[in-house]
């Protein structure tokens, strides 16, 4: 038997963590850049979890940020309104972790409920139903006065930091990756490939479709909770349709069905997005022309259209990097 190798993915994550921490201490990475890295890591969770639903299982969700919204609001309501946590109090960190998990579980329950229509619906119809559910969730936040209604939930304690986010992000990727590379994951893949054939080789397609939605929603909920505790705000507009489409663009840019692609695209597009924001602002300042922030979304929309027209398989196709992929059990 071969000696068990040190997991490559874990090694890369630790290396990345150490490098960023050191650069941060040396002031090469400033607080703003670290914030963008944190956002990217949260988008890694969102993109990989959406990929589990859309890319691996071949279902289609257009309301992924709705799940994130449930996680954000539930976890923030617990930490802010119920337990009144504070990062300065020792021990509150543990309660915070509990709040995040509770947010994920709440999102998973919603995912389970949304998974059921998916049993009967396919493709575009499913897209519309998930969009509808996402909008219903957003409308509900908008009208719930307990969590601030249209003003949003303010004053959320800042528990999310580079350490918590990278741990959550790496854990999410590992769990989703391990799930995909198991017999259960192959069952999900078979639904994407040919649902009738999957059913006729004995796969309970219903169960796996619901499972994909439930897992996907759970991790989206975790991401939403981390986001709320990073930017210290949970607001209905953060979880609308357009935000879901941004995550969708990530998985298509990275390659539907590739975890590696989702991770790369989450980083790439989060940085691109910030770059565009800054670039447009400085262009407007320099020229004095009325160039608005909406141009960022114009470019995003064109990017999506171009990917679909000219590079349907995205960056990675369905391939995985050797860092992510586990070796076959032999």
């Amino acid at each position: 038997m071969k000696l068990q190798k040190f997991p490559r993915f874990l090694a890369v994550v630790i290396l990345f963590y150490a490098v960023i921490e050191i650069l941060f201490k040396l002031d090469v990475v400033n607080g703003y850049l670290l914030h963008i890295i944190n956002l990217s890591l949260i988008y890694v969770i969102l993109a990989t979890s959406l990929n589990l639903i859309n890319g691996i299982t071949g279902q289609f969700s257009l309301g992924h940020m709705g799940f994130a919204g449930v996680g954000a609001y539930v976890s923030a309501a617990l930490s802010t309104l119920v337990f009144k946590l504070s990062p300065s109090k020792p021990g509150d960190m543990l309660v915070f972790v509990g709040c995040i998990v509770a947010g994920g579980l709440a999102a998973a329950v919603v995912g389970l409920l949304i998974g059921f229509p998916s049993l009967r619906l396919k493709g575009d119809y499913l897209a519309i139903v998930t969009l509808g559910f996402g909008e219903i969730i957003r409308t509900a936040f908008n009208n719930l006065d307990v969590v601030g209604g249209p003003r949003g939930l303010l004053g959320i304690p800042k528990f999310s930091n580079f350490t918590t986010i990278i741990i959550a992000s790496a854990l999410s990727v590992v769990v989703i990756r391990n799930l995909i590379q198991s017999s259960h994951g192959r069952a999900m893949l078979s639904i994407r490939e040919n649902e009738v054939a999957a059913e006729l080789v004995g796969i309970d397609t219903t169960r796996y479709k619901v499972m994909a939605f439930t897992f996907g929603a759970f991790f989206a909920g975790i991401a939403g909770g981390l986001l709320a505790h990073l930017i210290q705000l949970a607001h209905p507009t953060q979880f609308g349709f357009i935000k879901s489409v941004e995550v969708l663009i990530m998985i298509y840019a990275g390659g539907v069905g590739s975890i590696t692609g989702s991770i790369l695209a989450a980083f790439g597009l989060t940085f691109l997005s910030e770059g565009l924001r800054l670039g447009i602002r400085s262009l407007a300042d320099a020229t004095g022309l009325p160039i608005g922030g909406e141009w960022r979304m114009v470019i995003y929309a064109l990017l999506l259209i171009f990917i679909m027209l000219f590079r349907n398989e995205g960056l990675m196709g369905t391939k995985e990097s050797k860092i992510i992929e586990l070796p076959e059990v032999e």
Binding site: S183, V201, G202
Partner: peptide, 27 residues
């Protein structure tokens, strides 16, 4: 009706899935 984007091996393994016993956690 084959699973076109999966390997031949995976096509076969998927058909064996229902006889496997490993749960989600152990997987």
């Amino acid at each position: 009706r084959i699973f076109g984007n999966l390997s031949a091996l995976d096509n076969i393994r998927i058909a064996r899935h229902y006889t496997t016993r490993s749960g989600l956690v152990s997987s």
